[in-house]
Design a binder for these strands. Structure first.
Length: 474
RNA sequence: GGCCCCAUAGGAUAACGGCUAGUCCACCGGAUUCUCAGUCCGGAGGUCGGGGUUCGAUUCCCCGUGGGGCUGCCA
């Protein structure tokens, strides 16, 4: 039975790099019908917090990368927080075992110069502890040994133990260090495959030395390339947004983000780069992942997201959009959306053709929902203030009042008739009306917008715009 | 400094050791058009450098160079 884990440290938001690591673990596990485990590596007391843990869990759920065992759902291999495992003295027990086997030692430090090592000993340094010295436990790396392993991404690896040296496994505060805790936990949790960032490749021989000392079987490793920024340095805030939360706020769909993250360094068939990750599980192969660091491309992410935004069914999109507004605490708008669902659906349906994210969808659809929308400065300057504005709007008002056919074709006919009167050029005429009814110069198609808005809204807005045109006219 | 990973256009990738090095995003031009987007057509742009092996190297080997990682009582 395949068992994998995603083991973030709750010291910040879920990073897209972490999300990608989680994605590959998840993908592999689902394909192999195994168990996917979430484990919190909160051994850094200074930086870890339960708030971050909640945010990471929330982000993972939003992405839909669900786990079978974890701190929130429990499981037979718990606890799933290293801080709790520390409390249960799990690491103490195994560290002691290493000392008994003479493969680790206690290190006693100077009381004043707390970095200075006084001596190493296999015996529990009771009296020094009483006197308040810092004590750590250090793993003694075997001398002159070759540590070999096969990495699914990098191939056969070989390190010399002498290049690595001894390293601390238990801190003076009683917490295990990363390299020790992962080994103990992965073993106890019976993890079979470890997919993690490239940055852990050089740590692997240390961990293998510990597995070896205990006589434990090590999991299969695959070190996946890191995500970099445009300047090829590791992706950080300097390059723009990096947290999954941020992309959620920006109106990305989880399937869009996941699609892009998978696409990053995953070779796909030509012409098939847009897909739903949940339908791609069976095709997943570790050999498909490239072993080269990748640069995060915000533009391609937006393009991928746009493809998803336009292809999911409209009811689903409405639901997601409503969810998004609630996430942003825009409850008034949610009420407006709910008030007339068929109308809302039509609006979203015509607006999504123009945008790539739900944030953009929000911007472009706003004036369809609220009456007190703003008029763009450019519209006022280039159209509303011009001589032709008031006559065009006035004439449109007359024609639309008499109009009974509010289908797209009906609205088109009125507009074409209006343009035929040549108060101004066709473009100016259309743009004047576009701005009058929606306040913007970029909107969905004019005829369909008129049709969707309907007679009441259109007349009301034309009247308002007419008054405005008269008052701002140069 | 030591050890390790990586290298095809600006980004992501494709090419049993063998065609004019293909595709997607971005970019430029054209068509469609009420704006924008989309769609369609077209264009520019690439094998990091140097040595080998070979009839032939993007592909295999070595050396450089560049980028990245580890070398923490961070993970």
């Amino acid at each position: 039975m395949v068992r994998t884990r995603f083991a973030p440290s709750p010291t910040g938001y879920l990073h897209v790099g972490g999300a990608r690591t989680a994605l590959f673990n998840w993908l592999f596990t689902r394909k192999e019908r195994g168990k996917f485990i979430l484990r919190m590596e909160d051994t850094d007391l200074e930086r870890s917090s339960i708030e971050y843990e909640k945010l990471i869990i929330e982000a993972m759920k939003w992405l839909g990368l669900l786990w079978d065992e974890g701190p929130d759902v429990g499981g037979e291999y718990g606890p799933y927080r290293q801080s709790e495992r520390k409390k249960a003295r799990i690491y103490d027990r195994y560290a002691k075992e290493l000392i008994d086997m003479k493969k680790a030692v206690y290190v006693v430090y100077d009381k004043e110069d707390r970095k200075k090592e006084l001596f190493e000993t296999f015996d529990y340094p009771e009296e020094y502890i009483q006197k308040g010295h810092d004590i750590t436990i250090k793993f003694k790396m075997p001398k002159g040994v070759k540590i070999k392993f096969h990495d699914l991404a990098k191939g056969d690896m070989e390190f010399l133990s002498d290049d690595i040296g001894d390293f601390i496994i238990m801190k003076s505060n009683g917490f295990p260090t990363y390299n020790f805790a992962v080994v103990v936990d992965d073993h106890l949790m019976e993890i079979t495959h470890v997919f993690r960032g490239d940055d852990h490749l050089s740590n692997t021989p240390k961990q293998l030395a510990i597995y070896e000392s205990f006589g434990w079987k090590a999991p299969v490793f695959m070190h996946i390339p890191l995500i970099l920024g445009k300047d090829k340095s590791p992706l950080s805030k300097r390059h723009g947004a990096t947290s999954v939360d941020h992309f959620r706020q920006e109106g990305y769909l989880p399937e869009g983000l996941l699609n892009y993250l998978a696409l990053l360094g995953w070779r796909v068939e030509e012409g098939k780069e847009i897909f739903n990750i949940f339908e791609k599980v069976e095709e997943f192969e570790t050999s498909l992942i490239s072993n080269k660091n990748v640069v995060f491309d915000y533009e391609k992410l937006e393009w991928v997201n746009g493809k998803h935004l336009r292809s999911i069914d409209i009811e689903n999109l409405c639901y997601r959009f409503r969810d998004y507004l609630m996430y942003l605490n825009m409850n008034e708008l949610v009420d407006l959306l709910d008030k007339d669902k068929p109308y809302s659906m039509e609006v979203i349906s015509i607006c999504r053709e123009k945008v790539n994210t739900m944030k953009q969808l929000l911007d472009i659809s706003m004036p369809f929902f609220i009456e007190s929308f703003e008029y763009e400065e450019r519209y006022i300057e280039d159209y509303l203030k011009k001589d032709f504005a008031a006559p065009i709007i006035e004439r449109a008002l007359e024609m639309f009042r008499k109009n009974d056919d509010w289908t797209v074709e009906g609205c088109e006919k009125v507009m074409r008739d209006l343009a035929a009167e040549k108060i101004a050029s066709k473009k100016k005429t259309f743009q004047t009306i576009r701005g009058a009814i929606l306040g913007k110069l970029v909107t969905p198609g004019l005829f369909i917008s008129l049709s969707v808005l309907g007679k009441d809204r259109v007349l009301r807005r034309l009247e308002k715009a007419l008054n405005l045109a008269r008052s701002v006219k140069n």
